[in-house]
Design a protein around this nucleic acid. Structure first.
Length: 267
DNA sequence: CTTTGTTTAATACCAA
DNA sequence: TTGGTATTAAACAAAG
């Protein structure tokens, strides 16, 4: 049972590490991600101890966000106002705390082989670069997506090629798996526009089978256009979940939006 | 300018 | 004692 937080410790220092406090804040949020200032605010709201000496502990907290693999920096979508990025918990860091009580850390979370954290960094960098390059390509094809089974070299300047991000072991596993034609699963209704996308815009997909698109992708408002992109991303995530489980948890648990993923993927 | 984020370093703590 | 972890300080860059 999670302990009640409010005024539990008066002005005494709570028995939680900065990592615990930050994880609490993030997990308490509906979208499971918060801005830096929102993390500050949560901690100050719930623990009076941290209403003082803010310079000191906030510096420490920022250090923890950057230093620890368990925190993922999620870029804001262009239509999301505010400063800085959003911070989420790495989906694989669930076992970090004993019995989930936040009181003790079992062990430091280290993403295995740096693969997922590298992926997250690459995604962040690609997103930043993509947004800074204002002029878009002439022959934009918004739904052309790199298929996991398509190993043709990318012509992008900064390719977000899934094959570049995964080991050759996974790549060969994907390529060796049975290929078949499957209809794209129907998309859940967008909570923003409350209508289903026209099915004509959704091509069938020749490739490996995938399971259902995680509805988490549609927790945020999106346009039809964006939804198609998000669907392509979900497909990649599920694709690799099917065979490895590793990348899947990354994509599945972090509410990835189009802003998180490089637009180069769709050109 | 301030805020946000990254990184290095020193130090303290704690359990094996 | 040693290794892993947590805290704090500080320098610095990037971005708004």
């Amino acid at each position: 049972m999670p302990r009640p937080l409010r005024n539990s410790y008066g002005s005494a220092k709570p028995p939680y590490s900065y990592i615990s406090l930050t994880a609490m804040a993030i997990q308490s949020s509906p979208q499971k991600m918060l801005s830096l200032s929102e993390i500050y605010q949560f901690i100050m709201d719930h623990f009076p101890f941290y209403r003082e000496n803010t310079q000191r502990w906030q510096n420490s907290l920022r250090h923890n966000l950057s230093f620890n693999d368990c925190f993922l920096k999620i870029p804001r979508r262009p239509d999301q106002p505010g400063k800085g990025s959003l911070w989420a918990l790495h989906p694989d860091c669930g076992a970090m705390f004993e019995n989930g009580s936040f009181l003790r850390r079992r062990k430091r979370f280290k993403s295995e082989r740096d693969r997922t954290s590298k992926l997250a960094k690459l995604i962040t960098d690609e997103t930043k670069e993509t947004h800074s390059t204002a002029p878009r390509m002439k022959d934009d094809n918004p739904v052309r997506c790199l298929s996991p089974v398509d190993v043709s070299p990318s012509s992008f300047k900064h390719p977000f090629n899934i094959e570049n991000l995964i080991g050759t072991d996974i790549k060969s596993a994907v390529q060796s798996c049975p290929t078949m034609t499957a209809p794209i699963p129907s998309l859940p209704t967008c909570p923003s526009c409350m209508s289903s996308p026209p099915s004509a815009t959704l091509p069938s997909y020749q490739g490996n089978l995938w399971s259902a698109v995680p509805t988490a992708y549609f927790a945020k408002p999106c346009s039809h256009h964006e939804r198609i992109k998000e669907y392509e991303i979900a497909r990649l995530g599920q694709q690799f979940y099917h065979h490895t489980g590793e990348l899947a948890s990354f994509y599945g648990a972090v509410p990835v939006t189009t802003a998180v993923l490089p637009q180069a993927m769709f050109r």
